[in-house]
């Protein structure tokens, strides 16, 4: 067994274990339907967390994700309601806008040598503020296209459902794996996370890569905002508060090292699924308060960070 895949094995086995525990305790838990619902319910988080994975791999962090999700939802709903846009150009608009927003944050981080934490924190306030300026109250979305897309999907055995948001999330996952492990860009991201100074001396274009990483994260956040708008059929400036933290938690539980350089995109998927399965378990139980989800995730995070420390220590000793 390859040591570097260890965190990935741990995460995926933990997911399987939790799923089995649920299946043993509750009938109807261990079904394809519940499994697929994990994707349907968390598609937007999967997308946002995958973007976050690249940022964390490069040794940075992006706190603006939740606000970007809200902002793209608000912009879409306002474009649709007040300006009579068709959803498709509206989507293209927020994706471009998101990408530019991320690129701007990346450029500030690189050229002014500022902490990603501070710059994206500012980005978070900026995007949240901007969405309130665009519209303070929730804007409903009513458009045929929305209904069609939301209904689109494939029936699977056992009443399970492969919906449009799941499909988008899976496509994003495939794209991200390709980008991270089969392109030059991916190697650069890992390299900068490993040792930015050495990477520069090996000829890695640091500026271009840093900017691309944040642009990518915000692009995925905007996409996540689009997917999110299909859940709520509205745009609201106070939506998705704290989603960036859920995304960071998913990345870390997925085995990516917070200091950068180590981790896998697939791990992040399992991170989200673990959080989803805990939530499902609690709703099946019915007696537990939903806050237990947060408590369990807090504990998991703690365990995973401790595990990473241990692995890093052992790694340097060997």
């Amino acid at each position: 067994m390859n040591k570097k895949f260890l965190p990935l094995y741990v995460t995926s086995s933990l997911f399987v274990l939790l799923f089995l525990v649920g299946s043993v305790q509750f009938e109807n838990f261990g079904t394809l339907r519940v499994f697929m619902n994990l994707f349907t319910d968390n598609a937007f988080l999967i997308i946002a967390a995958i973007g976050m994975t690249f940022v964390i791999l490069s040794g940075g962090i992006d706190l603006s994700v939740g606000s970007t999700i809200a902002l793209s939802g608000v912009i879409i709903s306002v474009l649709l309601r007040d300006y009579g846009w068709h959803p498709i150009p509206a989507f293209a608009f927020v994706l471009v806008l998101g990408t530019l927003f991320g690129a701007a944050m990346g450029a500030i981080i690189h050229f002014y040598q500022l902490q990603p934490f501070i710059v994206t924190l500012a980005g978070m306030f900026f995007a949240r503020g901007l969405s309130s300026v665009v519209s303070e109250e929730s804007v409903p979305i009513t458009h045929m296209f929305y209904d069609n897309v939301a209904m689109f999907g494939f029936e699977l055995p056992g009443g399970a459902w492969l919906g449009s948001s799941t499909i988008i999330a899976l496509v994003v996952l495939g794209l991200a794996i390709w980008l991270a492990n089969f392109t030059r860009f991916g190697g650069r991201v890992y390299g900068i996370g490993g040792d930015a100074q050495s990477a520069a001396l090996m000829g890695v274009p640091i500026a271009r890569t840093t900017i691309s990483v944040y642009a990518l994260s915000s692009f995925f956040a905007a996409l996540s905002g689009i997917v999110f708008s299909f859940y709520t059929f509205s745009g609201y400036s106070l939506a998705a508060v704290g989603v960036e933290l859920d995304a960071i938690a998913a990345v870390v539980i997925g085995g990516t090292l917070l200091t950068g350089g180590y981790g896998y995109v697939v791990g992040t998927l399992f991170g989200v699924l673990i959080m989803g399965v805990v939530q499902t378990y609690i709703s099946f139980d019915g007696t537990l308060s939903s806050w237990w989800t947060k408590i369990v995730i807090g504990l998991l995070l703690f365990v995973f960070i401790a595990l990473q420390r241990y692995l890093v220590r052992r790694g340097t000793k060997a």
Binding site: W178, S198, A199, M202
Partner: peptide
Amino acid sequence: TVYQEVNLLPNLTVAQNVFLEREPKRFGII
């Protein structure tokens, strides 16, 4: 240039370190 001190990336594989920035590709993938 081989700079003073080893300036390679500890987290990447040996092969990646040798070929960083000029990885052989096939159909657009490494």
